[in-house]
């Protein structure tokens, strides 16, 4: 119930190297305030871990609670088509209170996305990808956002920088140990 059901793959948005000792997966919603709180913390964690860690973001919009969450996710997916997913991801989390369509077109301009690219992105073409992320999360036992997985195992600890870095370093050490050293 606490394992990542869908392995990290080519469908994912990643930062860092695939051969990193540790991979942190976040299931997030661009309009969720708790994800907004986690955003600068995860940035600091990435900074602290450097090239030891790969970071992955997957969509988990609770659309009925957060009416702009799916549109925001579509915008980020559209930006991904031009190699600007992470710039879009960051811009959305840094402007969580302003996620109307007009805002998204404005962010598009700032990221160098033509308005027709943004408009196409919002036409539903990414809905299957977003839903696929969401259902993969459900299958992994995601019950709210943000949900974090460290090397495929759900992380339920404190979400401050030190606790996360400790857990990630521990997982990195475990990952490079020989199999015989693993317990359970």
């Amino acid at each position: 119930m606490t394992h990542l059901a869908v392995p990290v793959g080519s469908q994912d948005h990643t930062q860092g190297q695939a051969q990193s000792a540790v991979t942190l997966v976040e299931y997030g919603d661009y309009e969720c305030p708790y994800c907004g709180e986690a955003y600068p913390i995860l940035k600091a964690v990435q900074h602290a871990m450097g090239d030891q860690m790969r970071f992955v973001f997957r969509n988990f919009p609770i659309s009925e609670l957060h009416p702009h969450a799916v549109r925001a996710a579509e915008f980020a997916e559209a930006a991904a088509g031009l190699g600007r997913f992470w710039q879009a991801h960051d811009m959305l989390y840094e402007n969580q209170a302003a996620l109307t369509d007009a805002d998204l077109f404005g962010y598009g301009l700032r990221l160098g996305l033509a308005s027709d690219v943004v408009a196409e992105g919002l036409d539903g073409r990414f809905d299957a990808k977003i839903r696929s992320d969401f259902m993969g999360g459900v299958r992994s036992g995601v019950n709210g956002t943000p949900s974090l997985f460290i090397n495929g195992l759900r992380y339920d600890g404190e979400r401050d920088v030190d606790s996360l870095v400790d857990a990630l370093r521990h997982a990195a050490r475990e990952a490079i140990r020989p199999r015989a050293g693993m317990h359970r």
Partner: peptide
């Protein structure tokens, strides 16, 4: 509390 709310989550999964 919101976001972690079970009923809101099931609402999203209802089509499934």
């Amino acid at each position: 509390p919101v976001c972690g709310d079970q009923m809101a989550l099931y609402n999203e999964i209802l089509p499934e």
